[in-house]
């Protein structure tokens, strides 16, 4: 049975250090299993946020060997066979203790987004649309809100532009509403002026770390940036809209 050494960040906002723990690794274990084993055998006070152990709750987001990942979805045999394994909390969010961060800033961003606003239903009280209309937004519904994309986004992580940019998770939340065939609200002005779509320079790290393989950049952020271009930057589109009397929303059909 192989042994591996972990360097785990221990501490809080006032300071801390990496501490080393060596434990046996069984076949099929993931990093979260190892953290639980270390917690049980060596560091009972190690703080970890976790819940489902199945990659569906988005709780155990952390940085493993420098890469933002879900601990429950990172198999031990995916990591380099040699060397220590460094485990840290997410960088972008305020540290609470050890591997646990305060991600409440994200929930405040979510509250800023105007909710789904459907029109009046058909005369029988039902809403109708086709699968073709739903396919695109269903991809965004896979999001488990692990906030790894928010953590990796360099606009938030390194440039600390939280007051300007809501981050990739909420760009695709806006996309899921704006692309919805039944939604009647208009969030394009918010996207440009409040949510800071221009601050994203589409370098795709959010897409690279998404554990649900959502194509955040190509299918969410860029289409939203293109709708902002339609509204604010494309002179021909503006003239056409003025001539045809286009309303607040883009033509939908």
């Amino acid at each position: 049975m192989a042994e591996r050494t972990f360097e785990i960040w221990r501490g809080d906002r006032s300071g801390g250090e990496f501490k080393e723990y060596t434990e046996e690794v069984d076949e099929g274990m993931v990093v979260l299993d190892m953290l639980h084993r270390i917690q049980a055998r060596q560091a009972n006070d190690l703080s970890i946020r976790w819940n489902c152990k199945a990659g569906k709750c988005g709780s155990c987001s952390m940085e493993i060997n420098g890469m933002p990942r879900l601990a429950c979805m990172t198999r031990m045999n995916q990591l380099p066979a040699e060397g220590k394994i460094k485990v840290q909390p997410m960088k972008t969010f305020p540290l609470i203790k050890d591997l646990v961060t305060d991600v409440s800033w994200n929930y405040r961003q979510n509250e800023r987004i105007r909710p789904f606003k459907p029109p009046a239903p058909d005369s029988d009280g039902k809403y109708r649309f086709q699968q073709a209309d739903a396919d695109r937004v269903q991809e965004f519904r896979k999001c488990i809100e692990c906030f790894l994309c928010q953590n990796t986004c360099h606009v938030l992580r390194d440039h600390r532009k939280q007051e300007h940019f809501v981050g990739p998770r909420f760009m695709i939340r806006v996309a899921s509403l704006e692309m919805h065939p039944l939604d009647t609200d208009d969030r394009i002005p918010d996207l440009k002026n409040e949510f800071g779509s221009g601050w994203c320079n589409i370098t795709r790290c959010c897409t690279e770390v998404c554990p649900e393989s959502i194509n955040i950049t190509d299918n969410g952020i860029i289409p939203m940036k293109e709708r902002v271009v339609d509204r604010y930057y494309d002179p021909v589109a503006r003239i056409l809209r003025a001539i045809t009397g286009g309303g607040k929303k883009l033509p939908t059909a």
Partner: peptide, 12 residues
Amino acid sequence: HLVGGRLNWFSK
């Protein structure tokens, strides 16, 4: 985007 992405009702 221009050929279709700007639309919300693909079925139409």
